[in-house]
Simulated assay, not measured.
Amino acid sequence: MRLAFQDFQFDCQELTLSKDGRKISLKEKPAQILALLVTQPEKIHSKSEILEVVWPGRTVTEQVVFQNIGHLRALFGDDAIKTFSKKGYQWQLPLSAVSEQNAAPQMSEQSGSSEAKPTNEQVDVTHEADQQADSVIANKSSNLPWPILAPILIAAAAVAGYLALA
Rank of each mutant, 00 (worst) to 15 (best):
P56L: 00
S114D: 11
S96M: 10
T119A: 01
P151E: 01
G112M: 04
N143R: 02
I81L: 01
I24Q: 08
A97S: 05
A74I: 00
K87P: 09
W146D: 01
T39F: 02
S46C: 02
R22V: 08
K43E: 04
A35E: 13
L163P: 04
T39N: 14
K87W: 04
Q32L: 14
Q63Y: 14
P41S: 01
V38M: 03
N143G: 05
E100A: 11
W146T: 07
I69Q: 02
V125W: 02
K47A: 15
Q9E: 12
V53M: 15
Q67H: 06
A164I: 07
A166C: 05
E28W: 11
F8A: 11
E100M: 07
S141M: 09
P30T: 07
E14P: 05
I44D: 06
S99A: 08
G21V: 12
Q63L: 13
I50S: 01
V53R: 12
A158M: 05
L75F: 15
W55P: 10
Q13P: 14
S48L: 15
S48V: 08
Q122L: 04
P30N: 13
L15Y: 07
Q63S: 13
L95D: 05
V64W: 13
P151K: 07
L15P: 01
S142K: 04
P94Q: 09
S96P: 08
G57L: 08
A4E: 15
G77S: 03
P151T: 00
V159N: 06
K47H: 03
W55F: 15
M107A: 08
S111C: 10
Q132N: 06
P94K: 05
I33W: 00
A35K: 14
L149F: 04
A164H: 13
D134G: 04
A104C: 13
S141Q: 06
S111H: 10
L75S: 09
I154Q: 12
C12T: 12
V64K: 14
V54T: 01
L72E: 05
L144E: 07
T61F: 11
T59W: 03
A31W: 05
G21H: 13
S114E: 11
E109L: 08
G88M: 12
A138K: 00
I148Y: 08
Q122M: 05
Q132H: 04
L72S: 13
K82P: 02
H71R: 14
L72W: 11
L95M: 09
T59A: 02
V38Y: 08
Q32K: 15
F76V: 03
E109C: 12
F76K: 02
V159I: 15
L15E: 13
F10C: 07
Q122N: 06
D7W: 12
L93D: 07
V125A: 09
W55G: 03
D79F: 11
L3W: 11
L17A: 13
F5T: 15
A80N: 10
I44M: 05
S111E: 00
D11E: 10
G77A: 12
A129K: 00
K29N: 14
A150M: 04
K87D: 05
T126L: 11
S114M: 13
F76S: 06
D124S: 05
E42R: 03
A133W: 08
A97V: 09
T61K: 12
K27A: 08
